[in-house]
Structure formats: C-alpha cells, structure tokens
Design a protein around this nucleic acid. Structure first.
Lengths: 114, 114
DNA sequence: TGTGGTTGTTTCGGGTCCGTTACAGTCTGG
DNA sequence: CCAGACTGTAACGGACCCGAAACAACCACA
C-alpha cells in the first residue's frame, strides 16, 4: 500500500503533529527518544542497548540515558537477560503503549484532514 | 483531500522519518525548533516572536533561544521591523528552505513506501 | 513630554543531553 | 581457571534548554 503526499502536505502534517506534541502537557520527548521508543514497540524483541545503538547510529551511553529518562516516565522498562547477564532487555510498558497509541491517533487524525 | 493512515502506518512513518533525522549528520533540531521553522515557512508572514510564542504555547525566551540556534545554522534570519521597531521579523533563508525540502522528501518517500 | 504598556532579549539557577573515556560485571576459549 | 572480549553504566566537561524574572528599547496617548 502506498500513500502519496505532496511537499506541502508532508510539511503540514509534520508541523501539526509537532505542534500537538509541543502544546501537550507531558514533557516532550526528543526525536531520539521517540525513535528509540518506536523501535522497541514496532520491531520484534529482544532489544538490547547495543542493538538500539547500532540501529540509530549513536553511542551506547545515548541509549542508556534515554532509557533512564523514559524509564522514569514509565514508558519503558529494563530487565537483565538471565541467559546472558551482560545483556539488558528493554521491554514495553502499558504507559508506553498508550503514549504511542495517542501519538498514532494524532498522526492519523491530522493526515485524514490534510 | 484526505489521507487514511492505520495506527501501524502512522507509527512506522514517524519512526522512519525520526530515524532519518537522527542518523543525519546535521545537528538534529528539537521538536520545538522544527515546529517553529515549519510555522515560519508554512504560514504567511510577518512572524514576530510574540506570535510564534502564542502559536506554540511557550514563553518568548524559548522562541528567542530557538531563533539564536537556528540563526547560527542559517535556517532563519531576523530583522527589525522598521514600522514598529519593537518588533522583530523572522524571515526565511535559502538554507532553511532546503532543509525543509529535504525533510518533505524524507516524509514523502517513506509515506510512499508504507 | 512623559508615563505606562509593549516589544524582544538577557540573566539566573537548575536540569538534560551530548561524546569520550573509564569502569564493573559477565561470558568464553584456551 | 583465568586473560581477554564483550556487555551496560558512571563520570566528566561542555553545550544547550527551560521557566521566571529583570531588563532595555520602543511606541502611543494623555
């Protein structure tokens, strides 16, 4: 399935959604944080710090810090991998799922009214 | 015109574009900065600091600082309003237009391949 | 003329994020 | 069993951003 968007439509969509995120009361996540969150929820587990860092093209501490922040917001949780205790498995949470569901609604609604 | 996006499509689109922004070499702008930039380029001038602050629901210093940063990157320029010298008019630049053109391409391409 | 209200900017203290580097815990193959 | 490789994390210094408040330039109307 393919969705055709003109230049103006693309930018309007991005603008409207970004505006909704800014005006939102919740502390707005950075682009990197949203990207991490979406990777966790869209791709199949398991997700380790190393994998996420490689996928995003950033260093591992960036991931650790983003997980700290989003962990505090309960958007994500961490657990030790019992099979290899060096690894940390990043897991989804109810709050994180709700956050992304709301984000998808925002995107979908603004796309519909383009 | 109306564009229908499922939940998964919305999130995938957002993820892909965010990923492209993160992996990009250019320093990635915050959501607020992109929102300001898009407002300037999508809506009709003139754009004053006060207007932008009201539209985004943030304080004026936020706008001033964002304009400082994006001005350094030459994505935006400032000029005094000669009719009312209290005002500062925010103006578009070639670099800013190119930046947004690239962003629109990224969005459009990922939407097409949803 | 001048005073009150408007603009945008600066300052302040506190927080977050960055990349690099150094570190501590864990596995693994000789 | 232990040296080396691999995990994720902490520490450091610098940059940026935040909101609130103070500030400086400017206008407008009495």
């Amino acid at each position: 399935m393919s969705v055709a968007l003109s230049t103006a439509q693309s930018l309007t969509l991005w603008h409207d959604v970004a505006l909704a995120m800014v005006r939102d009361d919740e502390p707005d996540l950075s682009v990197r944080q949203v990207c991490i969150l979406l990777t966790i929820y869209l791709e199949a587990p398991p997700h380790t710090v190393r994998d996420l860092a490689r996928k995003l093209g950033v260093t591992k501490p960036v991931i650790t810090r983003a997980l700290d922040t989003m962990g505090k917001l309960e958007l994500v949780s961490r657990r030790r991998d019992e099979k290899d205790r060096r690894n940390v498995l990043v897991q989804r949470t109810v709050k994180g799922a709700l956050y992304l569901e709301r984000l998808a609604d925002t995107i979908g609604n603004h796309a519909k009214s383009l």
